[in-house]
């Protein structure tokens, strides 16, 4: 069983983000592995571990696939130190400012050529928050879409996978044959911390860097364009009172002034 896990390097959640020339300014902010992708890495590792593990040269492997600048190797190392086998990073100046359509196109091309059975993603990146790449990948690859999984079970003998999909629309049981694109919600597991051994081992693991020509995709003109962006005025400082027996009444007074009652 060959599993690909798609990960993205994103600005740290608490970092102040701003737009420069219509794209997120990624320079000068701390960059981390998108935390929702850690659940995807963890789930992939649990799947292979449940079926004999991912020893080098064995039947199962977990490959990290990412698109981003060269420095995204830092985020990829974290995924490798959790226990993934190797990684592919697509880096190309022509990809700067790519949207979900471009990203899914590049990722799909890499996955197509890799002979994978399953692709696992997080549900969204914490910077762009579009939550569409897994569905786009399924459409581009023509593979089964099993997304928003709160549990996954795989039968490598029968080449089948079943998930529980949990969204605001309820809970669904969904299954398919391989190959499939899965996305996992954060309730599915508790990602492991990389062990010291894992961190040391990750330094020797291969990150295969590819440019667009190697992947075989040409850079496309954008599907959408940002006209302008502007910081919103910060929220005006509010009123803060301490309850000394009248806090509830004070709250009611505020709500009445604002015409909520």
């Amino acid at each position: 069983m060959k599993i690909a896990v798609c990960v993205k390097q994103v600005p740290d959640s608490w970092a102040e983000k701003k737009m420069v020339n219509g794209v997120l300014d990624r320079e000068g902010v701390d960059a981390v592995l998108n935390d929702l992708d850690e659940y995807a890495v963890e789930e992939a590792l649990r799947i292979v571990e449940a079926h004999g593990g991912n020893e080098e040269g064995g039947a199962h492997s977990v490959t990290i696939v990412s698109m981003g600048p060269e420095r995204a190797t830092e985020a990829i190392r974290k995924a490798l130190s959790m226990g993934a086998n190797d990684a592919i990073l697509v880096s190309d100046a022509a990809l700067a400012g790519s949207d979900a359509l471009a990203t899914s196109k590049v990722l799909a091309e890499v996955i197509k050529s890799g002979g994978f059975d399953l692709v696992i993603c997080g549900t969204e990146s914490t910077d762009a928050r579009m939550s569409v790449v897994p569905a786009m990948l399924a459409q581009r690859l023509g593979w089964a879409q099993l997304t928003f999984a709160s549990s996954v079970s795989v039968d490598p003998g029968a080449n089948t996978v079943s998930i529980t999909r949990t969204t605001e629309a309820g809970v669904d049981a969904i299954n398919s044959k391989f190959p499939a694109v899965i996305s996992v919600v954060e309730k599915i597991n508790e990602p492991r911390y990389p062990s010291f051994k894992g961190i040391m081992a990750s330094k020797k693991k291969t990150i295969d860097s590819r440019d667009l020509a190697t992947v075989g995709v040409s850079a496309e003109s954008a599907w959408s364009l940002v006209a302008d962006s502007a910081p919103r005025p910060p929220r005006a400082a509010g009123v803060k009172i301490t309850d000394e027996g009248n806090g509830g009444n004070d709250l009611v007074k505020f709500l009445a002034e604002k015409k909520f009652i």
């Binding site: 509010g238 009123v239 309850d243 806090g247």
Partner: peptide, 26 residues
């Protein structure tokens, strides 16, 4: 509290029942 237009520092089990009464009365 950084986001609050109106913040009450207090125990919700005291503040909310009083506020509920106040809203209902109004």
């Amino acid at each position: 509290f950084d986001l609050a237009d109106f913040g009450v520092v207090g125990d919700l089990f005291a503040v909310l029942p009083q506020a509920t009464q106040g809203v209902t009365a109004q």
